[in-house]
């Protein structure tokens, strides 16, 4: 009897394995379907336009639009390819320079990123995202004072740039300016109340730097509320428990 069950199970397994062999087909089918809708539909339309663009400027603008959409998707390879094309066709577009700099950051080429982002800022000094991205490059190069400067410029230019507020706060924490760190993290939450990382960062700041257990518990709890499916939920719950908080 056991042998029969085992045989049945193995047959089932073989059937499952055959199904698994189709994974490339499933991925192809899904990729094809995804290519025809939403953001990809828009990208494909732009790629078609690019082949018919009448001059370098149109080619640059279209390439830039593709790079922007690819950046939204997080497709680094394509963002890099199209922002580079845009810069080649028209070196004076600050947005293309910014996207190229952002691509370099994603690819871990921080020196190249700094060069492009500085070009972008030279073309348009009040473009906040370029200052934020330059802050990121400088941070990766461990130049924290300069990174703080760039984040602050970005926030001054765009007071809703909550990601810059988060990052500058963390650099203040690294340089032991805890009051400033606290202030910017709270500002980020004020600007974007569902911005979960700021809650967790505040919790860590209160627990590890300001030694304020109650506030730490409060912000860890608010983090879990802001990010109900947090991958680190169990871990953060254990932090709350260790601090004596209730779940």
């Amino acid at each position: 009897m056991k042998k029969i069950i085992l045989l049945l199970l193995i047959s089932f397994l073989t059937f499952s394995c055959n199904k698994k062999q189709d994974e490339s087909a499933i991925v192809n089918q899904e990729t094809n379907a995804a290519n025809r809708i939403g953001i990809n539909k828009e990208i494909n339309k732009l790629k078609e336009q690019l082949t018919k663009a009448p001059n370098d400027f149109e080619r640059a603008v279209t390439s830039n639009k593709i790079a922007e959409l690819e950046a939204l998707k997080g497709n680094v390879t394509s963002m890099f390819e199209y922002s580079q094309k845009a810069v080649k066709y028209q070196p004076n577009l600050y947005k293309s320079r910014y996207l190229l700099g952002k691509s370099y950051n994603e690819l871990g080429r921080y020196q190249d990123a700094i060069k492009e982002l500085e070009e972008s800022i030279q073309l348009k000094s009040d473009f906040a995202p370029a200052h934020f991205e330059l802050g990121n490059s400088l941070y990766k190069m461990y130049n924290y004072p300069k990174a703080i400067e760039e984040y602050l410029v970005a926030i001054k230019l765009d007071p809703t740039l909550y990601m810059a507020m988060n990052n500058v706060a963390l650099l203040y924490a690294e340089t032991r300016k805890h009051a400033e760190a606290e202030q910017f993290l709270k500002k980020a939450i004020e600007v974007k109340p569902d911005f979960a990382p700021a809650y967790k960062n505040l919790g860590i700041l209160y627990e590890t730097r300001l030694k304020n257990k109650q506030s730490a518990i409060e912000y860890y709890t608010r983090y879990l509320k802001a990010r109900p499916n947090a991958p680190d939920r169990k871990v953060v719950e254990s932090w709350i428990r260790v601090l004596g908080g209730a779940l």
Partner: peptide, 17 residues
């Protein structure tokens, strides 16, 4: 670096493979 798009979340197992 790589990137894959899918429509159906149940295809994520196939994507992982």
């Amino acid at each position: 670096t790589g990137s894959i798009d899918v429509v159906n979340p149940t295809a994520l197992r196939a994507v992982s493979l």
